[in-house]
């Protein structure tokens, strides 16, 4: 199998690294070769962050080549737009509706693009997800990243749900309440994606 390539874009503190580790561990359980690369350090202070996850029979580069990414997860509505260059034809774009204006927007120097959904749609199949609202329903807005994984799980068939669930449990090992909330969040994301699919 040629590599499955996933980019997760967001703002520092949104759970980017946790999300990429959960995907990576799930892929490892299924026997795939896995590489993840992530942002640490300075950029974590509220700046743009991203991680790249790749799995398949054999993965060389931890960086995804531009034009080879099949799944883009944007944990904030704007952030994914920085990575569209990396997308392959027919890619899936899973974009949270959450808005976190950067400083330049707050003071009116910059603006979010008017037609964000339209722009995303040019690059592949777009799924807009009210991730924060769904996470809040699941028990904590901090689980928005896991809602997004639920959507990914529906769209990518290469990881089965046992592996996803096991990976989430391991990630939050020993924290029963957190596991429960995150499994709820995962389920709500999965259902949201499947309902949207049927609605199409």
């Amino acid at each position: 199998m040629s590599a499955t390539n996933i980019i997760i874009a967001g703002v520092g503190g949104q759970g980017n690294i946790a999300a990429s580790k959960i995907i990576g561990e799930a892929a490892l359980m299924l026997g795939y070769d896995v590489k993840i690369t992530e942002t640490h350090g300075m950029a974590q202070r509220g700046g743009s962050v991203h991680s790249m996850v790749r799995f398949g029979d054999k993965v060389f580069s931890p960086l995804i080549p531009k034009g080879a990414c099949q799944y883009l997860l944007s944990l904030e509505i704007l952030e994914g737009l920085r990575w569209v260059e990396y997308l392959k034809d027919g890619a899936f774009l899973i974009v949270s509706t959450e808005i976190r204006p950067p400083y330049s927007v707050s003071v009116g120097k910059d603006h979010y693009p008017q037609n964000i959904e339209e722009i995303y749609s040019k690059y592949g199949q777009l799924l807009m997800v009210p991730a924060k609202e769904l996470a809040s329903k699941a028990g904590s807005t901090r689980s928005a990243n896991i809602v997004m994984l639920g959507c990914l799980a529906y769209l990518t068939k290469s990881i089965n749900s046992e592996a996803w669930i096991e990976s989430i449990k391991r990630r939050f090992y020993g924290k029963e309440k957190v596991i429960e909330i995150n499994l709820n969040a995962f389920q709500l994301g999965y259902e949201f994606a499947s309902n949207s699919d049927r609605g199409r």
């Binding site: 700046g47 531009k66 704007l78 952030e79 737009l81 920085r82 330049s104």
Partner: peptide, 20 residues
């Protein structure tokens, strides 16, 4: 080269790291 980059979206508002 087996990958073709798509055209980027330019002029997006930057999001530099900030004091918490």
């Amino acid at each position: 080269i087996s990958w073709m980059p798509k055209s980027p979206v330019n002029d997006l508002p930057a999001r530099a790291p900030v004091l918490c």
